[in-house]
Amino acid sequence: MATQFRLNRQTPTLLETLQLRLLPEGSASAVRYLALLMILVLAAISLFPLYWALITSFKHPSDVATIPPSFVLTRPVLKNYIDLMTGSGVANSPVLKWFWNSVFTGAAFTFGVVLVASLAGYSFARKRFPGRDKLFWLIISTMLVPAWSTLIASYVLTLKLGMHDTYWALILPGLASPFALFLFRQFAVTLPDELFQAARIDGAHELQLWWLITLPLSRPVLATLAIFTFTYHWNDFLWPLLVLNKPQIYTMPVGVSIIMFQLKGTGPAYGIGMSAAILMSVLPIVAFILMQKQMIQGITIGSLKG
């Protein structure tokens, strides 16, 4: 029962590759199959809604709400997407403009967050100034405060600053992101000090140290940060819902929620809803697939190394 040496075994079979490490040594193969089955079932449950939305969005509106439902796609059509793009019969719904609003403010927001957080993160990681660590932890601790408690004040503040119904309301309030600062600072402290000393001796000034040394070395973390930030902004619904009231300035989620509210009832409305859900999900999913490894590292930095 004790540790077994498997070094002299032959090439492992498929079953052995799937073998479960945390199970009791020498469990019957039935147990192992059961565990594998369990993980497959859980994954299927977790992915089913997404799959269901995907195939529904490509069904013809008349096939969307059938009993019994069909779980395979027989004849894919783009009707739902076209209906959505042309406003789905809801007055005042420029969907393409909403899409552009989301992309544009998302890009500007991401650029700002990364710029500001990388400057400050570099400073918090590498400069010595009084109150540095206290200030840093003060900023980080705001991440544990529920957003709802200050949301009302942010709403009133942006209203008083005349930012409602403008792009500024979507870009400025979240610009100083504690999460971005934390992620970048945690990376920048790991850079070797010798690099900075050498560059200083060569006459580099502080902004050059940031631009020519820190930023090129932190490309992976910058990419992760950019994707996290853009996805966050792209998915954000509550804040734009509060501060935007004119259909021309809506972001995609706000506009879609208005369409869904107008199209009460079943059938065709669900087809349009599913195509909207898929349209909003494509960008985050593609970004995740491209950057999977870095994003997973980014999540764990926040929890384990803090």
């Binding site: 977790s46 992915l47 997404l50 529904t56 059938t66 809803g273 859900a277 999913i285």
Partner: peptide, 27 residues
């Protein structure tokens, strides 16, 4: 890991819209 994380990258709004269909009483 990716399979379980994937539903988490899409927006809460999209998830809720999808589930409104899943929960529908008739269809």
């Amino acid at each position: 890991q990716a399979a379980f994380y994937l539903p988490g990258v899409i927006s809460g709004l999209a998830v809720a819209i999808i589930w409104r269909f899943v929960f529908d009483f008739h269809v």
